[in-house]
Amino acid sequence: MSRAEASEVSEASEGSRASGISEVSEVTDVGVGSGTAEVVGLWKPSPLWALGLLRNELVTTLRRWRTLALLGVLAAVPVLVGIAVKIETSDGASGGGGGPAFVTQITNNGLFLVFTALAATLPFFLPMAIGVIAGDAIAGEANAGTLRYLLVAPAGRTRLLLTKYATTLAFCVVATLVVALSALIVGSLLFPLGELTTISGTRISFGEGLGRAFLIALIVAASLIGIAALGLFVSTLTSSGIAAMATTVGLLITIQILDQIPQLHAIQPYFFSHYWLSFADLMRDPVYWDDLFRNLGLQGLYAAVFGTAAWARFTTKDITA
């Protein structure tokens, strides 16, 4: 391999660059030729090794006390809602109106606790947990100084950012499933299970209800893609994990409030939270897809815009922390 080819390799895309590393090392070894350098030239790194960081990041994130505490809080919400509904209805009262969606149906069917719990956590608890994880993703590493060591490892800035985003998205799924599973367990313990009535009034089997519950959980997880990207972008702006987390959660609250102000009607469809509660449309028969797709499209838009912004920022940033 000539030196010209070697420099081509170093300019090629990231994936192919990884596989070319051993050859490049051999070329440069000729110049210096120290004992240890020959060892470097021997092995060929597999492109799959690049996934090692993702695996480590997933495990490391799930092992942190903070992550476990967030998941614990999320798991507790369905327990509290379930117990509250049980107490409320045990003295024969009809449960009255109000409360999150589906709450009145829980006493008839424990499966509705899943929908209620997701509806109760989606506006704040779930996105707050995502905001903490996403906001801390880069800023927390900068804060601890570990960012510079990851980068000289070398993790690669794009790869590190993708790893962080993938881990945040995985956390979205895990967090949502924790809420759903906790609700399913509590619901089945406290209330009867069985056939259920959709919002449209039709009856569906328990099996199909369970399927829709799973689909809803996935849609709820996907609803968090936008705030995850936003949090990641904020995370690249500062070297303080706390500041990034607080900013992200602050943005979440601000958007939620602005989404309630009628005068802002014209821009509200662009708020990442605007179509969040469209997941209830999955409980219609037939399913009403319009707002669901609008929600997914909006989340994709946020991921593209803020993902790109995070990438542009992080790949050119001076790492002085």
């Binding site: 092995w43 790194p45 490391t60």
Partner: peptide, 28 residues
């Protein structure tokens, strides 16, 4: 660079495993 930086909640070994997995040319 400018002193060590470690993950306090990880063991010494796990710190090194993490830094090593950050290197895509390191054989797992």
């Amino acid at each position: 660079i400018e002193g060590p930086a470690l993950y306090g909640f990880l063991s010494g070994r796990d710190n090194l495993l993490r830094y090593d997995s950050a290197d895509p040319t390191a054989d797992p």
